[in-house]
Amino acid sequence: MLNMQNVSEPTIFNQKTRELLSQLAKDASFTTKKYAAGELELGNSIKLYGLAQCTWDLSTIKCLQCLDDAIGQLPSCCDGKEGGRVVGGSCNIRYEIYPFVSA
Score class of each variant (00 low, 15 high):
I93P: 02
T60Y: 02
K81H: 10
R85V: 00
G84E: 06
V86N: 00
R18N: 06
Q23S: 12
C54W: 03
S22H: 03
K16Q: 15
M1F: 10
D68M: 02
Y35Q: 10
P75R: 08
D57C: 09
A28M: 08
T32Q: 15
D69S: 13
P99G: 08
T32N: 14
Q53Y: 05
N6M: 10
C63N: 06
A103M: 12
F13P: 02
S76K: 12
D68P: 02
T32D: 15
A70N: 08
A37E: 13
C54H: 05
V86R: 01
S76M: 09
I46L: 14
I61D: 13
L21T: 02
I71E: 00
S29L: 09
Q15V: 03
A25K: 00
P99F: 09
T31H: 11
M1H: 12
G80K: 08
Y95G: 00
L58I: 07
K62L: 12
E41P: 02
D79A: 13
D69H: 08
E9Q: 13
I71H: 01
E41R: 09
I71C: 03
S22K: 03
L2A: 10
N6S: 11
Y98Q: 09
T17L: 03
G80C: 10
G89Y: 10
F30P: 00
C54L: 09
N44T: 06
I61S: 13
G89T: 14
G89C: 04
C63E: 06
